[in-house]
Design a protein around this nucleic acid. Structure first.
Length: 230
DNA sequence: TACCAGGAGAAAA
DNA sequence: TTTTCTCATGGT
């Protein structure tokens, strides 16, 4: 099955995912940091707290002291680490002169140049950089996450030990460079990954026939523990 | 109780 | 260079 056909199968089964669930590009960037190794429901609590405190802006986050910011994002876990990372992100946006409209960062270079700049920010690794590029800056950069590696290894399309760059290149070589397609595909892979872990009531069967509709994690052919290569 | 969640960076080997 | 450790809350 081609990657395009696979996308169509997942879309037909799970429906459009409407990612990224955020009101502004800056909220996407903040969410990308907060969701690192963390359930999205916990990220939502943290973002809500930032909004309630009127602190969801570059200037506000830079103005907050560490302990106050950490307390606001506490529900997202790793709050001391993520407070530093949010500060670093905001400082970078401020230095780029786009504090008032972070989405304008997209006007400051090619996708590759923007990616390199994002990767220099402490706390922004490959996946977070690609998530920001794709969902906040609207550049078609395919996002690879733990679910991508796990599910596609189960499907026999990956070995499982490839580097992040190799997996990204695999998808980008096989798919047309299309913002909407990359957006939906990654979201669908996350839906599939969650389904593998915990089949939903409305969907007892697996769309890809990978025998996942059983007790949690029991049917995984891969350990849930992340591989170091990702 | 134990395990996992839309990772990244530092430290150790 | 590759592997291991650390960061932490909330749901199942």
């Amino acid at each position: 099955m081609t990657l395009m056909r696979l996308h169509d199968t997942l879309l037909a089964h799970f429906g459009a995912q409407h990612w990224w669930p955020a009101e502004t590009p800056f909220e996407v960037m903040v969410g990308a940091i907060l969701t690192q190794n963390t359930a999205w429901t916990n990220v939502e609590r943290a973002i809500k707290a930032l909004k309630t405190a009127d602190a969801l802006s570059v200037a506000a986050i830079l103005a907050l002291d560490h302990d106050t910011l950490a307390a606001l994002i506490r529900p997202a876990g790793y709050f001391n680490v993520k407070a530093r990372r949010l500060k670093a992100l905001c400082q970078s946006l401020y230095d780029a002169g786009v504090a008032d409209a972070p989405e304008r960062l997209a006007q400051q270079g090619t996708a590759a140049e923007l990616r390199d700049r994002l990767l220099t920010i402490n706390g922004v690794g490959a996946e977070t950089a690609d998530s920001i590029l794709l969902y906040a800056l609207e550049r078609p950069s395919f996002v690879v996450d733990t679910y991508t590696r796990r599910s596609f290894t189960r499907l026999g399309l990956l070995r499982g030990n490839e580097t992040y760059a190799a997996i990204q290149a695999y998808f980008q070589a096989a798919l047309p460079t299309d913002l909407a397609l990359f957006n939906e595909y990654h979201a669908l892979i996350v839906a599939l990954g969650k389904h593998h872990c915990r089949p939903t009531p409305r969907c007892a069967g697996c769309p890809l026939n990978t025998h996942c509709a059983h007790d949690q994690h029991a049917q995984h052919t891969l350990p849930l523990r992340k591989t170091a290569a990702l």
